[in-house]
Amino acid sequence: MLLIPCPWCGERDVHEFHCGGEAHITRPAGADTIDDAAWADYLFMRQNPKGLYYERWNHAHGCRKWFHVVRDTVSDQILAVYQMDEAPPDIPGRSS
């Protein structure tokens, strides 16, 4: 059972958290000007990578803050945690 390091509360059981899925998806501004396919790309299409994954989590049953996690989806090992307004960190030796 995953142990997630909330940047505010420290390590907590995964069941205190809500997973928000893939991070750094840009919601198109001026959506009226893009076609259905581009909108669908935003709404539904996902990287779903096997390996390095940048994702969002929410400490739903704790401080309720959202934050980013970098996790290896094969080992489930968490490699980095960073704030919502931070740029995704590079993970040494790993490419996304």
């Binding site: 809500h18 928000g20 919601r27 969002r56 929410n58 739903a60 309720r64 959202w66 919502m84 307004d85």
Partner: peptide
């Protein structure tokens, strides 16, 4: 409530 929080914190901070 979670929905509102999500938009506030992730999309419109």
């Amino acid at each position: 409530l979670s929905w509102l929080e999500e938009w506030l914190q992730t999309e419109w901070p």
